[in-house]
Amino acid sequence: MFMLGFPLLLVPFAIYNIVAFLLRGFVWTDPVFQVRMISQAEFALSWGDALVVVGLVFLFLEIAKATRMSRRSVVDHVLSLLLFIAMLIEFLVVPETATATFFLLLVIAFVDVIAGFTVSLRTAQRDVSLETVRSAD
């Protein structure tokens, strides 16, 4: 599968940057849609909220990818770490990224890095344990 070496969280990061730098004046808190709930409360989903939801979906896919052990998964983890570092630097330096939406995408990227390495280490531990049991027979 060719997507294994590609950090999927690059997609919401790229979407944010394209919108922030090409659509000057875009407001992430503007509602995408509003729905009146049964309780008569008004539920509004903003553009920023929608992008965070997209980021969470890609985070799920990234964690699912982390369960596969291969050389490509190591490359994937390194690329995810580089993406997180790039996002952190951009957050600290570029004024257009000083928003709650970008911060939440940054947190999602951080969770991706930590979860990816954790899942890989746990999977590798199980592989070593199985090898030890098999060689004892």
Rank of each mutant, 00 (worst) to 15 (best):
113 V>E: 11
66 A>F: 11
85 I>P: 10
91 F>G: 04
101 T>M: 07
10 L>F: 12
71 R>S: 05
75 V>Y: 11
70 S>K: 08
62 E>F: 01
35 V>R: 13
38 I>N: 14
109 A>R: 08
9 L>D: 05
94 V>M: 07
71 R>F: 01
15 I>T: 08
30 D>C: 00
44 A>I: 04
58 F>M: 07
137 D>P: 04
58 F>S: 03
110 F>V: 07
66 A>C: 14
55 G>R: 11
132 T>S: 14
67 T>G: 13
77 H>P: 04
110 F>I: 07
19 V>H: 05
108 I>R: 03
19 V>A: 13
6 F>M: 15
29 T>A: 03
75 V>W: 13
55 G>Y: 13
80 S>Q: 15
50 A>D: 07
28 W>K: 02
88 L>W: 07
85 I>H: 09
36 R>P: 01
33 F>T: 10
131 E>I: 00
124 A>S: 11
126 R>Q: 12
9 L>T: 03
101 T>A: 07
8 L>I: 12
63 I>T: 15
17 N>W: 15
44 A>K: 12
119 V>N: 05
100 A>V: 10
107 V>P: 11
99 T>A: 00
15 I>Y: 03
66 A>V: 08
10 L>Q: 05
41 A>M: 06
66 A>P: 15
22 L>W: 08
73 S>K: 12
52 V>P: 07
24 R>N: 12
26 F>N: 04
73 S>Q: 15
51 L>M: 03
38 I>E: 14
19 V>E: 07
74 V>H: 13
70 S>M: 05
44 A>Y: 02
110 F>Y: 12
27 V>A: 07
77 H>W: 06
3 M>G: 14
